[in-house]
Amino acid sequence: MSGSKKVQLHLNVNNEDMHVLVESSKTLLEVLREDLTLTGTKHGCELGECGACTVLKDGKPVLSCLLLALECEDAQIETIEGLADKDQLHPLQLAFAQHGGLQCGYCTPGMLMTAKALLENEARPTRAQIREALSGNLCRCTGYQQVIESVEEAAITIEETENSAAGVKS
């Protein structure tokens, strides 16, 4: 069967404006991975069950496997490729590396994006809040404990950095 019609789509990915010609039946996940070659966002179940494909849309974590690309017209999309600031890893990335928050790493891009959105809303989340926020991101390797500790650690680092930047004693 021939594919769907191609349509012009404008979106902003990791602070870069992009115009792409996409098949109208593609999900955001397919457009990111195939048309924009941003393969950091992973595909797991592709049915909304695992969270591997999580990206931020206008600041909120969403599942790109169940989101039509055309529903993202003019949206701000953040993917794992935009998390580090050039060579400077994001505190969440450092914390995951230091605390064993990842093993095979397949769930990690999704975990990190969900955790980023959480920390932007809630600077010092409780363990219960972290568990709840990450409840849609499945991991086969870590057993979750290290993931939660990594997010807690990153929250502290971010707070300390902000405090010292503002000249406040922590």
């Binding site: 349509v7 109208s24 039946s25 592709e46 039509l68 055309l70 529903e71």
Partner: peptide, 12 residues
């Protein structure tokens, strides 16, 4: 990849 079957998309 698990593809969506083709369809026409309209956004009124």
């Amino acid at each position: 990849m698990m593809r969506l079957p083709p369809f026409r998309y309209i956004a009124p």
